[in-house]
Simulated scan of single mutants.
Amino acid sequence: MTFNPLQERGIPLDKQLRNWRELNVTPTDPDHADPYTRCRIITMNGIEVEAILFSHQLARHCPDLELKQHLARVRYIEAQQQKVVNWLLPGLASVLETTIAYEQVAVDLTAWVARMEPDPYLQQAYQFGVLEDFDHLYRYANLYEMIEHRKAEKIVDNLTEVMPGRPTYLHHRDPVDNVREPYDKSSAAPISKLHALTIMSAEQQTMNFYMNVGPTYMEPIARQLYQEIGLIEEEHVTHYESLVDPGESWWEMLLNHEYNECYLYHSFMETESDPKVKNIWELHLNMELEHLRLAAELFKKHDGRDPEQVCAPELPQPVTFEPNKAYLRELIATQIDYTTLGTGYVQDAHERFEKMQEALMGGEKAPSERVIEDNRAKSGEEYRLQTEGDHPVHSLQMQR
């Protein structure tokens, strides 16, 4: 059955405010919940955070008092949604456990988007990024084993493999080489716009999370690893945000944000295994339908166009969290030695890359390398989770 959110009516805005009891949701059970339920929660938290931040930026560039007041009303509801979504995470989970879940989101969400993306240039951007998040998962899993004496397989539940991707120390590039060419708003497929907004939002939330939780650890190697990967997440946000056409007006961007929220809440409502969480996705979808209707009215008024000119006439197939093991192994086998040059990709080191590496490393090994050595010394071997035979590049050590 097709679903066109532009033709649906949601809950009126003045009926969306929730009281403390309604906001006080029961968190998921960390021992029995589907790991992909946690992934959907983390994803929607990132989407809601982006909605709030974007609305603030729009308000700061909007001289009309009445429009600022309208944005404030909707934004407060978005803030309530964000609190409900993020508070579904169990308080018992450690920061590192949540970190590993964040990286599972980055791996399986980005891999799914790469598989579904119709534009070859955009697809390459997601393929490039996912091999780096895949390696981050491996580094954090080794840190988890070393300082909490537990294995990441309990968190990822064998749905996502844990082993080397593109080595993390090679992710540090000249900042100019993290900027990609944007899609063309006039010709890009609607799904491409949704993909770019989704991955940008998810990576931005990961960047924000690491910036804040990194210094809460006492162990030097943990503090250093969060610092290193936090810098790379900044690169990833640059990488993904540059895919969005800056020629979109504020009102077109607002419309795309609201449409994307409807798309993701509908997707997760369709695929959620936890009935209580599913109910929240459905409730939030019905709220977002009204937010979309209001954004569409602003778009028509200020851009003078019909929303159907820029949005898909019906929702694409649902975003699905599922294992991507074979796809990731293929990427590792064929694209492991890629880096960036300008807005493209190369397989050989270039002068800017080597200069950045030399300046940042200062002749020392990166924390992402040392955490593997430290865990190997402490646990007898590094931690890996391989579920289907041996890895095609099991002993990967990239040489440039």
Rank of each mutant, 00 (worst) to 15 (best):
E181Y: 11
E181H: 12
P182K: 07
Y183I: 15
D184Q: 11
D184W: 13
K185P: 04
S186G: 13
S187P: 01
S187R: 07
P190L: 08
P190E: 06
I191W: 10
S192E: 09
L194R: 09
A196F: 07
A196Y: 04
L197M: 13
I199T: 14
M200S: 13
M200F: 15
S201M: 02
E203F: 11
Q204S: 10
Q204H: 10
T206C: 04
T206P: 01
M207P: 03
M207K: 13
M207T: 08
M207L: 14
N208T: 09
N208S: 13
N208D: 12
N208G: 08
F209D: 06
Y210E: 10
Y210F: 15
Y210I: 01
V213C: 03
V213P: 01
G214D: 06
P215Y: 08
T216L: 08
T216D: 00
T216I: 00
T216Y: 00
Y217R: 12
Y217P: 06
M218G: 15
E219S: 12
P220F: 03
I221L: 13
A222M: 06
R223V: 02
Q224D: 15
Q224V: 04
Q224Y: 09
Y226M: 02
I229T: 15
I229P: 14
G230L: 03
G230V: 01
G230Q: 02
G230D: 07
